[in-house]
Design a protein around this nucleic acid. Structure first.
Lengths: 268, 268
DNA sequence: GTTTATTGAGAGCAGTGCTCTCTTTAATCA
DNA sequence: TGATTAAAGAGAGCACTGCTCTCAATAAAC
């Protein structure tokens, strides 16, 4: 008789709870009613199983029924916790963005604050490392959009911008320290429309980097993910490059130069 | 009673026929038995419908049953022409690679032979133009691999390497014409393993470009697709960049410089 | 005109996402 | 502690998918 009177509330609870439980594996010792704790634990289990499936078989093969089986429960039961397959994908998306963000932040923080070239290299290496370790999850974030699925921007934008934020922080820091410059070769002119966009970004993020260098930073950003994507998605042939690490490191070094960073270890 | 005695032969015929019919829409006036011609026409129809579905709903949503419906035929009938969904995906993959290759070649050929910077820009613009016009097909080629699907290298490598071949041709031509150089700033050292790979590539494609510039060319290649993928896959936010064309052109100009090309219109 | 290879139809299997109803379980309140 | 009630799981069912198998119709080839 109680039946589903207000499923909205239930789903909202799901989202909020998992939104918190997404990071590390907290939420078990958190207070709350026993029901809430059991619920959070089940959602966390679903997320964990989803992550496993995602890693094993890829995003498009992610099956709620399979998750239910792994969970030892009938398929309709998981709908008590997750609104839909899309919702689960969104949770996994946020989860993956945050894991990547955490690793990038940690890698960057491990390099001395003033070593901007080193931090840039650390950031790039962390992205590549995570991507190669988690190709399916990387594909979910940076590959073709899952058909019929549109990520809800209001939930994914924040975690999804962590890497570019970290990169901008490095470049801005370098610029303010006088270690970011076109080094005597100004790039192509920045047309008015692009300049407006860059000005808005500079304002929004509180940056000091001028237009040309900011555009170059954006190029370094897209190029980094281009290189990683090529490697993860198998765009280099089978045997073209035997040591992809060397290729990537070379690319990263050139990109640091493109961005205006003094190459690590280079003598001015 | 005849039944399926040798399905292999049939499928081989399919592949060959469509392998030819894939480019423009020939294969209708070609000789052959009436059966063969009717078959080729049906396969071409399937391919056309598949291309439409692919463009409309994306690769993972490509459904043989839907193609059968559009074809006005029961689902099992299409299996007489296409071995499986994978096979259809492979055909569409080859089809898309060739269309992209054709457009890139045409765009490059429209620029005077000696204008290497112009040809580079034309190549990049053609890739971007096609990608924005055909996002689903671009995603099939350069996005996350379709789950459970592994493209057969022996059939897709040739059409899949047309863009990088065109790019290498431009860069090698520029180098031989003395218009490709590090311009006084040698990049990072090329380690031994990478140098070996590059030497093999140089030999295989008959190039003259030295290691450092060849590696930079590879970076320009991956970066080009990185920029296009970011745009097509929506990695830039909704409103970060209002005029993406300007951003891309700027990136392309910087990449030409990275590759060692004299920027178009620049004074030496 | 007969033979025979090819093609399409249809049923069927195992899987998917998702909904609906019914029953069981377990937390909460008197 | 015992009754109430909210939450959760079970199970059937719908519409869809890829793919296989068998059988009947068709049309080319001899």
């Amino acid at each position: 008789m109680p039946e589903d009177k207000n499923p909205e509330d239930k789903n909202a609870a799901v989202s909020e709870t998992t939104g918190e439980a997404v990071g590390p594996s907290a939420a078990a010792t958190r207070p709350g009613t026993p029901r809430e704790r059991a619920r959070a634990r089940t959602v966390a289990d679903i997320l964990r199983l989803g992550r496993e499936q995602l890693a094993l078989h890829g995003a498009a093969a992610l099956s709620l029924r399979a998750v239910a089986r792994d969970l030892g429960v009938v398929s309709s039961a998981v709908y008590r916790y997750v609104e839909s397959r899309e919702e689960l994908l969104t949770l996994l998306l946020i989860d993956a963005y945050n894991e990547l963000g955490d690793e990038v932040d940690a890698a960057v923080a491990a390099v001395p604050e003033g070593d901007f070239g080193g931090r840039f290299a650390a950031l790039g290496g962390a992205v590549r490392g995570w991507a190669l370790r988690e190709p399916s999850r990387y594909a979910l974030l940076f590959g073709s959009p899952v058909p019929g699925y549109r990520a809800p921007a209001e939930r994914t934008t924040a975690p999804g911008t962590r890497v570019i934020s970290a990169l901008m922080t490095i470049l801005d820091g370098a610029f303010r320290a006088g270690q970011l410059s076109a080094q005597g070769r100004p790039g192509p002119a920045v047309p008015a429309g692009l300049a407006r966009d860059l000005a808005k970004i500079r304002l929004e993020f509180g940056l000091a980097v001028p237009d040309d260098l900011l555009a170059r930073g954006a190029l370094a950003w897209t190029s980094l993910f281009g290189a990683v994507s090529f490697e993860v998605f198998g765009q280099y042939g089978e045997d073209s490059f035997t040591d992809r690490g060397q290729l990537f490191d070379h690319h990263l070094a050139v990109l640091a130069d493109v961005a205006g960073l003094r190459a690590a270890g280079a003598v001015p």
